[in-house]
Simulated assay, not measured.
Amino acid sequence: MRVYVSVAFYLPGFKAGGPIKTIQNMVTQLDGDLEFWIVTRDRDLGDTEVYPSVQPNEWMELDSSKVLYLSPDHFNVKSFAKVINDANFDVLYLNSFFDVNFSIKPLIARRLGLIKPCPLVLAPRGEFSKGALALKAFKKKLYINLANWFGLYTNITWQASSELEKIDILNALNVDPASIFIAKDLPEKKSRVSNDQNNQVLSEVRLVFLSRISPMKNLNFALRVLSNVKSSLIFDIYGPIEDENYWQSCLKWIDALPKYIKVNYCGAVNPAQVSHIFSHYDLFFFPTRGENYGHVIAESLSVGTPVLTSDQTPWLNLSDDNLGWDLPLESESLFIEKIEQVANMSRDARSIWRKQVMERASSRVNSDADVADNKALFEFAIKRFKNK
Rank of each mutant, 00 (worst) to 15 (best):
F9D: 10
A16Q: 09
G18T: 03
P19C: 09
P19H: 06
Q24F: 11
D31M: 08
L34W: 04
T40W: 06
D47I: 15
T48A: 08
E49W: 14
E49N: 11
Q55W: 05
Q55S: 06
P56V: 13
P56C: 13
E58H: 05
E58I: 11
S65H: 06
Y69P: 01
P72D: 11
K78D: 14
K78C: 13
A81W: 11
A81C: 10
N88R: 15
V91K: 05
Y93I: 01
Y93A: 04
V100N: 08
I104S: 12
I108H: 00
G113M: 13
L114K: 14
K116H: 08
K116W: 06
P117T: 04
L122T: 07
L122R: 14
A123R: 12
L135V: 03
I144Q: 09
N145D: 05
A147H: 03
N148C: 10
W149G: 13
F150I: 10
G151L: 06
G151P: 11
L152K: 08
I156F: 08
L164C: 06
I169S: 07
I169D: 03
L173E: 02
N174G: 04
N174I: 10
V175N: 10
P177H: 14
I180P: 00
K184A: 15
D185S: 07
D196I: 05
Q197V: 12
N199Q: 09
L202A: 04
S203N: 11
E204Y: 13
V205P: 01
R206V: 12
L207A: 11
V208P: 00
S214A: 15
M216G: 02
M216W: 03
M216S: 05
F221K: 15
F221V: 04
L226T: 02
S232Q: 10
L233R: 14
I237Y: 00
P240T: 13
I241A: 15
E242H: 12
E244A: 15
Y246H: 11
Q248D: 03
Q248N: 14
S249C: 05
S249R: 15
C250H: 10
L257T: 05
P258Y: 15
K259I: 03
K259D: 06
K259W: 08
V263E: 00
A272G: 02
Q273Y: 09
V274H: 05
S275D: 14
H276L: 12
Y281E: 04
Y281P: 00
D282G: 06
V296E: 06
I297V: 02
I297M: 06
A298K: 04
V303G: 07
G304I: 05
V307F: 01
N317G: 08
N322M: 04
N322C: 04
G324V: 09
D326A: 15
L327S: 04
P328C: 15
K338Y: 02
A343H: 03
R350A: 08
S351P: 00
W353Y: 04
R354F: 05
R354K: 13
R354I: 08
K355R: 12
E359M: 13
A361K: 05
A361W: 03
S362A: 10
S362E: 12
R364V: 00
N366I: 02
A369V: 10
D370H: 07
K375Y: 14
E379D: 12
I382W: 01
I382T: 09
N387Y: 13
K388P: 07
K388C: 13
